[in-house]
Nucleic acid binder design. Sequence first.
DNA 1: AATGAATGAGTATTCATTCAT
DNA 2: TATGAATGAATACTCATTCAT
Lengths: 192, 192, 192, 192
Amino acid sequence: MTAPQGPPSEKPRSRRHDPGRRERLIDVTLDVIAENGVAGTTHRKVAAAANVPLGSMTYHFQGIDELLAAAFTKLADLTADGFEAALSAADGPRQAREAVVGLITGDLLGERRSILLTYELYALAARRPNLRLVTDTWMARSRAALERHFDPDTARMLDALIEGLSIHRALALNPMPVQTVREAVERIAPDS
Amino acid sequence: MTAPQGPPSEKPRSRRHDPGRRERLIDVTLDVIAENGVAGTTHRKVAAAANVPLGSMTYHFQGIDELLAAAFTKLADLTADGFEAALSAADGPRQAREAVVGLITGDLLGERRSILLTYELYALAARRPNLRLVTDTWMARSRAALERHFDPDTARMLDALIEGLSIHRALALNPMPVQTVREAVERIAPDS
Amino acid sequence: MTAPQGPPSEKPRSRRHDPGRRERLIDVTLDVIAENGVAGTTHRKVAAAANVPLGSMTYHFQGIDELLAAAFTKLADLTADGFEAALSAADGPRQAREAVVGLITGDLLGERRSILLTYELYALAARRPNLRLVTDTWMARSRAALERHFDPDTARMLDALIEGLSIHRALALNPMPVQTVREAVERIAPDS
Amino acid sequence: MTAPQGPPSEKPRSRRHDPGRRERLIDVTLDVIAENGVAGTTHRKVAAAANVPLGSMTYHFQGIDELLAAAFTKLADLTADGFEAALSAADGPRQAREAVVGLITGDLLGERRSILLTYELYALAARRPNLRLVTDTWMARSRAALERHFDPDTARMLDALIEGLSIHRALALNPMPVQTVREAVERIAPDS
DNA sequence: AATGAATGAGTATTCATTCAT
DNA sequence: TATGAATGAATACTCATTCAT
């Protein structure tokens, strides 16, 4: 299981043919995780879903751990990008609050697939130090984005509230209505 | 996997008669999940951890799905019990809020295991309808316990806040201080 | 379709006194073989089909080999009984020939279940000396019954013809018409 | 399971490159079925007999069903080939009849294996539609080969007679003498 | 006499990974 | 460089049988 170590240099990135295959594999991996969970994600399933020969999986990725790490890194990066974009566009606390409401009830965080992938990431990160880096970075970016509009404590509270509301909206049989979400956000971050 | 160290003459226990084995297997399964994740939980690991022959696993549980379901059901039941107990003991909104703060900031080591198991449950429940029943029941019980002290909307908000704060405390490098937790709870559920 | 495993299953009725159980188990075993083949016949399936506790299987039969032997012995005995009865009732070669036609095209040998069980017996008997005894006895009885009406050589030929025609009728998409069967019998055993 | 005896230095064969392995596995499977029956034919036994790693079995065949189907298809094809060849070589009804006698009474050792495998096929085909196709094709080819020399009805009767006589010769303690076989064939297909 | 519980050997199959080409 | 074939370890699960009660 120990990865045979080559020269401890940068990534080979010598993919002259079919560049973008690596990227495609990462995207497909997220789909496979969303459908089967980390437990059910295998080289075979990913290769089949990406229409790529099995033998090429370990050619592009050292092992399945690297594949999972790459996939979750991309998930975190994209999600944090969306988060930042939404908050950057807001002007003033009122708009910022509304942006938060939109993130919770909208597609980015609210999407079933995203939430689902996030659980999988959390569950895995708890046992994989390299993924802890991913989640830490993600949380830091979220908080920083919130701190553009709110004081640090409020930002952290809001961050946690977003997390909890997103999860409950995804799990609950009858999700909390938008108006209640707005009310919660306002309680945590009232008009000063 | 280090061999469990004990007195040298750790006999394999005359196992022919072993009442309560089923219950013990469920407990051990939660330990194995906490350590290895659902993805890494196998009949073999559970059997070894419980000092039980492998063939005994599918005698007591139809398959590994039933084993996982039983384990997560127990987790949900026990956690909800503790949740209810803490809130039942509270007298008046002030004590109720403090009970909530206590639940969020409770014993970190023990809590870490719980949170970790909860991710695994969420990730699995997303794909297993029978586990959705477990999470639904759990959420309903939590909300009902909160509604003993708070109005329904506030109860739902608090429930989500608890969820988010617990997760972030478990994931964060430097967890949110208790005082900030208390402040968040008070903002959501202010002194009427 | 899987046999109910383990303790949580429905209790099979208090069957403490159940005379004739052994006989019932033999009959049920033939049904199970007919449906699943020898390869798919297990103590569990028979016990479930007979609504009998698993542990009682090896109480009534030394092992699964004895169970199979008992079942196939009964099959052979019953079939030979029917064979003898049909031929005993015949008076004169004409009626004997017609009896043979009836056996080939009728229910006793023609029945799908019987033919199917017979294949299984033949396949097993090839490797189990104790079952060779069963097939030998069966063949001897058939031949003796035929020799009541035909000379020894003709009897053996007829016996083989019956065998082949029964099989082909069972396997063929469009079975040979009765009239052709009759013609074949008459060719082998002509009106002297 | 006797170890295959050879020169003491029977190397495990540098197996990494092994073209024709699939075909060899099919042949070996027939041997294993002949010796152990379908019920006793396992991936392990076939892999061991073919000196091939266990994991290789499901690489070459989707599952054990596909392996069995491939093996029985080959059996049917080869046997029908021999049948056709023998009858094609015959010139005129007299030679054709003699060819049939030869097929029934042919080499006992080799024949025994064939008959035995045929039972297994029949027993399995009764429950597996894909194997019904194999037996149907086989029967059709046999009949067509016989119809080169005999009228359709006689061909079908002969076909059944061959079946029955082959089985009885394989099962009987003292097999029917060749002369009696010849007599039976002549009765079914007399010199017009 | 009868059986629920237990057990270790065995089953088909899947898997990440290796390697010769 | 890319990959089809191969491999051994692991997986969930089934089984005939044993045994304490």
